[in-house]
Design a protein around this nucleic acid. Structure first.
Length: 523
RNA sequence: GUCCCCAUCGUCCAGAGGCCUAGGACGUAGCCCUUUCAAGGCUAAAACACGGGUUCGAAUCCCGUUGGGGACGCCA
């Protein structure tokens, strides 16, 4: 039998990092067994879903390279893959359940159920519906209808015995049937609910392995009940531990962002990304642009493989030291047996470390290809770039080396792509390195020295500056910082001599002149 | 409140009775390199939650305690 797994996102507008890990494990398991991975859209709760809310999710999967064999946009033999379009199929299943006595029409109001639930709470016992408004005969139905009641359909769950199954991650699991509720599977308006839809779809789509987050573990008995009542063969189940918050054991949730932003490392990564977004002119808010959301990583220029590799190791490992995996190696080695049973907290800093490693392993050409779109989008070079811009980009990327940790970091070096009169100056750096006694005449003499330097290349510039320092009888630190600030506007950056050479003599002299001009007391 | 689960360095993992003086990675600290910022090199600190068993022997098995977490919808 061909292995078939699925991931079932709800269209919420963004792809959550915890969801991606679940999807990844499904994808790896399917690919590793030569099977298929499908995407099914859980949009039965029509009110809270909007069509365009799906797009970012599909884009996220594509970016991560998690391709699906059947599902939205690719379709397949079991289409449609949207639960909102499968209502008739679900209603037919409900009728079958009713006919087989596995479900009943219930005429209770929400308030009545709520009252029973609260009573149980007060008496400190687990709630179990009294079935007072259960209608099993036409006479009962007529009576309830006469009272103006409307029927929903509830599962008639067993009230004794246990539901036992083997979970591929958890091992043997048992639930007492008596602890299960008579869950509603169909509303009075005829629409069907998740558990029913899920069980039916898993069967219709021939899903062999249901791999999902642990919060679904307690849903499993009722879904098994539905599937069994409908005569379906059961899939195998595997429940993954949840991904926890940074620095905490609580489940990671998109709703607790403000809490995460108080976490130092999380905030650092967020702010780094926000700076890149600002340089790109993206109007982002923390709610949609933060390290819990996959889009964040794409926007700031992470390598999808870095994210995937990090997520792979969140709850799974091959051995005590292998950390870097190619996609092929992941597919080859992944196994549910080695998935952990305890929650793992999300550590954005470690994710960044994976990203740095990937970036370092990339060729210069690859890094140029990654960074180029960022400069284009920021309007710092043309689209497409001119040959001159492209070759300059190559020089800058080469010089910046590992300083470019994510592709968007190229935006830390706008001064290499801006006209001389557009360079922004860091006032603090000017104060510290240039607006000091004796620096101005020194900078002036150094400027003349640079004007005469031949050739205008890193090595010869370095030699020239060392000679200058010797003649002046100063330490190199006394002039090099001033030149850096004068030419780049900043106190930090990569090797100064490379920077000067990349900019060329004219730009360097012009910028030094502009800086000297700036030093003149305002007349 | 009811039910269930989890428990090794700050964090992610290794460890399935002797290989453990507990290993790797991220992070942290120190040193080296260095024009700044990174990167890199070297070194270090850092954990089996606690208490009982079982066993010749327990991080590994059992029980309890403690701590943490999850599920309890006409959401998915």
């Amino acid at each position: 039998m061909t292995v078939r797994t699925r991931f079932a996102p709800s269209p919420t507008g963004y792809l959550h990092i915890g969801g991606v890990r679940t999807a990844l494990f499904n994808w790896l398991f399917a690919r590793g067994h030569g099977g298929q991975f499908l995407l099914r859209i859980d949009d039965t709760d029509a009110e809270r879903n909007i069509a365009e809310a799906l797009q970012p999710i599909l884009d996220g999967f594509r970016w991560l390279g998690l391709d699906w064999d059947e599902g939205p946009e690719v379709d397949g033999p079991h289409a449609p893959y949207y639960q909102s379009q499968r209502g008739d199929r679900y209603r037919a299943a409900v009728d079958q359940l009713l006919a087989r006595g596995a479900a009943y029409r219930d005429y209770a109001t929400t308030e009545e159920i709520q009252a029973e639930r609260e009573a149980a709470q007060r008496e400190k016992r687990r709630f179990q519906y009294s079935r007072r408004w259960m209608a099993e005969s036409p006479a009962q139905e007529a009576a309830f209808k006469a009272e103006g009641r409307r029927a929903s359909v509830r599962l008639k769950m067993p009230r004794e015995g246990v539901c036992a199954f083997h979970d591929l991650v958890r091992g043997d699991v048992e639930f007492e049937w008596a602890l299960e509720q008579d869950h509603v599977v169909q509303r009075a308006d005829g629409t069907c609910l998740y558990h029913l839809a899920s069980a039916v779809d898993d069967h219709d789509f021939a899903i062999t392995h249901v791999i999902r987050a642990i919060e679904h573990l307690s849903n499993t008995p009722r879904q098994m009940f539905i599937a069994t009542a409908l005569g379906y063969a059961l899939p195998a189940f595997a429940h993954l531990p949840y991904v926890a918050e940074p620095g905490s054991a609580e489940k990671l949730s998109k709703r607790k962002l403000s809490k995460y932003l108080k976490h130092h490392e999380f905030k650092k990564i967020h702010d780094h990304g926000a700076d890149i977004a600002a340089a790109l002119g993206l109007g982002v808010t923390p709610e949609t642009f933060n390290p819990v959301v996959v889009d964040f990583y794409r926007e700031v220029g992470f390598e999808p493989d870095a994210l995937v590799n990090y997520l792979l190791l969140l709850g799974w490992s091959l051995d005590d030291r292998t950390e870097t995996f190619t996609r092929e190696q992941m597919v080859e080695h992944f196994s549910l047996e080695r998935v952990n049973r305890s929650a793992a907290s999300f550590d954005p800093q470690k994710l960044l470390a994976f990203q740095e490693r990937r970036m370092q392993a990339l060729s210069l050409d690859a890094r140029v290809a990654r960074t180029c779109p960022f400069l284009e989008r920021a309007g710092l070079i043309d689209t497409p770039p001119t040959d001159a811009q492209r070759s300059r980009l190559g020089l800058v990327v080469d010089a910046a080396a590992d300083r470019i940790k994510v592709a968007g970091d190229i935006l830390s070096y706008p001064e290499f792509f801006q006209a001389d009169d557009r360079v922004a100056y860091d006032e603090k750096a000017l104060d510290k390195r240039v607006r000091k006694d004796g620096v101005e005449p020194l900078l002036r003499r150094c400027r003349d020295r640079l004007a005469a330097a031949e050739p205008f290349e890193a090595d010869s510039l370095e030699a020239a500056l060392h000679h200058f320092v010797e003649v002046e009888g100063i330490k190199i630190g006394q002039i090099i910082h001033a030149v850096r600030v004068a030419v780049t506007g900043k106190a930090v950056g990569f090797g100064l001599f490379q920077g000067l050479a990349i900019l060329g003599r004219d730009a360097c002299l012009a910028r030094i002149d502009r800086t000297l001009e700036r030093l003149k007391p305002e007349a």
